[in-house]
Design a binder for these strands. Structure first.
Lengths: 189, 189
DNA sequence: GGAAGCATGTAAAGTGTTACATGATTTT
DNA sequence: AAAATCATGTAACACTTTACATGCTTCC
C-alpha cells in the first residue's frame, strides 16, 4: 500500500471538491467519522506530506485578511485514488467496542445487573440510530442532486446497522429479564 | 475512568480464571479480538502496572524449568471490574472500516467498477461470517457448560452482524448492477 | 462588543503494533 | 531432530488525541 487510509480519505475529499484542511475535517465530522474519523492534527501534516509526494498541489487562496490554502489532486493523486478504490487488498478493519467488551464479561454480574447492562447497550444503539436518521442521513441526501449517491449509501448502511443492533439487543434484553427461565429464547405462551 | 478498557479486558480475563499474560493474549485472540484486540506488548506491561496499583497480585508459578507468573484479582481489582461493568459512562466506540471508506468514495468509479467494489465488500463480509460460525461460535459454546453464557452472546452478536452485513451488501449489489436503471431499488417484475 | 465560526498549524502525551530476543517443553 | 507451543519481556516505530497558539471575519 502506497499510502495509509487516512491519506486516501483526504484524496477522496479533495476529489469531491472539499479543498482546504479545515473543510476536510468538517466534512469528515459530518459524514465518514462513524467509520473513519480524523483530526486537524492529522489532516494538516498529511496535506503537507501528500503535496511533498506530488499527489496534490496547494495554492494560497486568502479570503480577505484570512489566510487559506486550497488543494487539488494532481494526475498522480487521481490515479492513486482510483487504484485504491479498485484494489483487492483486504481493507483494514478495526473495531473497538467497549460496550461489547462489557457484555462479554457480564457473567460476573447478577442477572438483574446484567439485564440492566444490556438495556444500556440497547439505549445507546437507539441513540446512535437517532443521530444517523436525524443528522447524517439528511445531509447525505443533499449529495444526490449532484449525482453523488455513495455517501448516502454509506450513511444508510450506518443507520440500518444501528437499527439492527438496537433490535438485536432489545431481543436479548427480553431473554435475559430476570424471571424468564429458558437458556434459549422462551417461545412458550 | 480509573483504568483504560484494555486494563479491564485483563481484569475480566483474570476473573474468569485466565491467569497468565500468555494465556490472556491467546484467549483474546479466540474471543474478544473482533471487538477488542490486544498484543503481548500491551498485556505484559499492563499486568505489571495493575499489580503496582494493587488491582492484581502475581505469584511465580514455574512449570519445570519454564518460568511462569500467575495473577489473580485483589478485592480492589474485583471491585474495579464490577464498577466498570455497572458504569453508565458512554463506552468508547471506535470503528475504522476502510471498506466503508472506499464505498463512500465509489462515485469516482464507473458503474461497473463500483459494482465490483460492492461485490468485494460483500465477499469479505461473507468470509468474516464464516470465520465466526466455524471458529468463534463453537469455542464460545464450550463456556456454557460452566454456566458462562455471555461470551457466547457476544459471539452470536458478531456472527449475526456479519450475516446481516453480507445480505445488506448483496441487496446493494443487486441495485447497483449496471443495466439496472432505478435510483431506488427496482420493484418491477 | 462579544461569541461563533473560519483557518492553519505545533507540541506533548498517550496508545498501539511490529519486530526482536531468549529459552524451556511438548508434539510430530 | 525439527517444529510448534508455552512463556516473558523490551525497543523502536507508527499513529492518534488533546491541548495549545494565533488571528481574521461574520453574526448577534
Amino acid at each position: 500500500m502506497r499510502l495509509k487510509p487516512s491519506a486516501y480519505l483526504i484524496l477522496g475529499m479533495l476529489r469531491g471538491g472539499v479543498g482546504t484542511g479545515y473543510a476536510i475535517k468538517r466534512a469528515v465530522d459530518q459524514s465518514t467519522r462513524f467509520f473513519w474519523a480524523t483530526s486537524f492534527a492529522q489532516v494538516y501534516p498529511e496535506l503537507a506530506h501528500l503535496e511533498g509526494q506530488g499527489y496534490i498541489i496547494g495554492e494560497d487562496d486568502p479570503q480577505g485578511g484570512r489566510p487559506r490554502r486550497t488543494y487539488r489532486l494532481t494526475e498522480s493523486g487521481d490515479h492513486a485514488l482510483e487504484e485504491w478504490l479498485q484494489s483487492t487488498r483486504l481493507p483494514t478493519f478495526e473495531f473497538r467496542d467497549e460496550g461489547l467488551l462489557r457484555l462479554f464479561f457480564a457473567d460476573v454480574l447478577s442477572p438483574e445487573d446484567a439485564a440492566a447492562l444490556v438495556g444500556r447497550l440497547r439505549e445507546q444503539a437507539q441513540e446512535a440510530d437517532r443521530v444517523f436518521r436525524e443528522e447524517v442521513l439528511p445531509l447525505a441526501e443533499t449529495g444526490l442532486e449532484q449525482g453523488i449517491r455513495f455517501p448516502l449509501v454509506a450513511a444508510r448502511l450506518g443507520a440500518d446497522y444501528y437499527s439492527w443492533r438496537a433490535s438485536w439487543l432489545a431481543q436479548l434484553e427480553a431473554e435475559v429479564q430476570p424471571g424468564v427461565k429458558a437458556e434459549r429464547s422462551s417461545r412458550a405462551p
